[in-house]
């Protein structure tokens, strides 16, 4: 699709090596390495302040890196920001649609920033309003749109230049389930057309559903990298059994030699044989509140980044 751009490797759209970002004395991104392959959806997960958004902004060429290398489409972000941005679509965390204009005008005016001719921009705006199911909101001012509509419009705006790479910073933040599902569906459709996507999200179900590969960051460093499935099986096992955190339950678990974590008033057993654990608990402790469930990305996330609240 973008053979006219010089590339390091045909399969890597973004390559970061020892990428670092400092704000005065604070290290926001601490010499991280990652590579995003063409056509995949790549996720950045992590608690607040982990360095996700800062990394996104460096990829977008709007925040200069402190050290290391960062290449997008094979081009250095510090020397060729315009060429890179020409092929980027950005969905920022904070809605920054232009409130002086209607939904339709937001798209055509944004297209102009890319030097897209008016006629092409108008056709593109129509297509995108249809695609994001905003047709009937075409002439509505931004203030009159619901949160979900604004988010859909901002995705439409990010697509106005037909980007090779989409950068999504918490694309479904604050949306109801219907709006989230619609956006997920659309992002998958866009991916199917050959688009590469990089996203941050706090919704781990969203990451598990959308991301081909992801990293979990904390304190500016990448803790782990892999597909959601491989990370779950590696760090959380296949299943989790939960029961009330009582001395009897703990005694039972000790008796069968299962290792467990006490989390608040619940004990969690990370296990590959949930039936055995549940049976042992039911039989020996005759306990009522026993729950067996598949391990999720959330379990991996909390295990790796801890349960301490972040600001």
């Amino acid at each position: 699709m973008y053979s006219h751009l010089r590339r390091d490797s045909i399969s890597d759209v973004i390559v970061a090596e020892s990428l670092e970002k400092r704000f005065d004395d604070v290290v926001a991104v601490d010499r991280i390495d990652f590579a995003v392959r063409e056509g995949e959806i790549f996720g950045f997960l992590g608690p607040n302040g982990a360095g996700k958004t800062t990394t996104m902004k460096m990829i977008q060429c709007v925040s200069p890196k402190t050290a290391g290398t960062l290449r997008v489409f094979g081009m250095d972000v510090s020397t060729r920001p315009r060429q890179i941005k020409q092929h980027l679509g950005v969905v920022p965390q904070e809605n920054n649609l232009d409130p002086d204009f209607t939904a339709y005008q937001n798209l055509t005016i944004y297209a102009r920033y890319f030097g897209i001719p008016r006629k092409t921009a108008e056709e593109r705006a129509e297509e995108l309003l249809d695609f994001m199911q905003l047709r009937e909101k075409s002439d509505v001012l931004i203030d009159k749109l619901s949160g979900g509509m604004k988010r859909r419009l901002i995705i439409a705006r990010a697509l106005v230049n037909d980007p090779e790479l989409l950068i999504l910073d918490e694309p479904t933040i604050g949306l109801d389930p219907q709006a989230r599902h619609l956006i997920w569906e659309k992002l998958k459709e866009i991916q199917a057309q050959g688009n590469t996507q990089v996203m941050t999200t706090h919704y781990l179900d969203e990451a598990a559903r959308l991301c081909d590969r992801l990293v979990i960051m904390d304190h500016g460093k990448i803790l782990v990298e892999g597909s959601p499935g491989s990370l779950i099986s590696e760090y959380a096992g296949t299943d989790i059994v939960e029961a009330d955190s009582t001395p009897q339950v703990m005694a039972c678990l000790d008796a069968i030699g299962a290792s467990y974590d006490a989390v608040g008033d619940v004990v969690q057993v990370f296990t590959g044989r949930p039936h055995d654990v549940v049976r042992a608990l039911m039989e020996s402790c005759s306990h009522e509140k026993v729950l067996a469930r598949p391990a999720t990305l959330e379990d991996v996330f909390l295990k790796l980044t801890g349960r301490t609240l972040r600001e």
Binding site: K85, P92, N96, D98, P99, Y110, Y113, F114, G115
Partner: peptide
């Protein structure tokens, strides 16, 4: 308030 500058510099403008 409108973050219009942020939106514009995400396009190929400095």
């Amino acid at each position: 308030y409108q973050k219009t500058f942020d939106a514009i510099i995400a396009a190929p403008l400095s």
